[in-house]
Amino acid sequence: MARLGTSPEPSHAGGDPSAPQHVAIIMDGNGRWAKARGLPRTAGHERGVEALRRTVEAAGDLGIRYLTVFSFSTENWRRPAAEVNTLFGLLKAYVQRDLSRLQQDGVRVRVIGQREGLPPDIAELVDRAERETATNSKFHLTIAFNYGARNEILRATQVYARAIAAGEVTGELTDAGFEQYLDTKDLPDPDLVIRTSGEYRISNFLLWQAAYAELLFVDVLWPDFNKSHLESAISRYHERERRFGAVTPGAT
Rank of each mutant, 00 (worst) to 15 (best):
A156F: 02
L230Q: 04
D224M: 04
L99Y: 03
L141M: 10
A58R: 03
T68E: 08
R97V: 04
D183N: 14
A36N: 13
P8H: 04
F145G: 07
R108M: 07
G15L: 10
E239H: 11
V109S: 13
V159S: 13
T133N: 15
L99T: 03
L182A: 08
V109W: 05
P249K: 15
S228N: 09
E231Q: 14
E50Y: 02
S235C: 05
A43H: 08
R97E: 13
S228F: 01
P40C: 01
E172R: 02
T248Q: 14
G250A: 05
Y66T: 04
R150A: 12
R201M: 04
G48Y: 05
R101N: 12
S235R: 13
L230R: 07
Q103H: 12
Q21R: 14
R53D: 10
L230W: 05
L67N: 06
R201S: 08
E50N: 05
V23K: 14
E124H: 12
R41Q: 03
D183C: 13
G113F: 02
N85I: 00
N204D: 08
Y181L: 01
Q114N: 14
R37I: 02
F70I: 01
D219W: 07
R195K: 09
G14I: 08
L216F: 14
E9A: 10
G167W: 01
Q103T: 10
E130C: 13
R3P: 15
L91D: 14
L39C: 05
R131S: 08
P20G: 10
F145P: 13
D127E: 12
F145H: 12
T55L: 03
G148S: 09
R108E: 09
Q114Y: 11
G106A: 08
G31H: 04
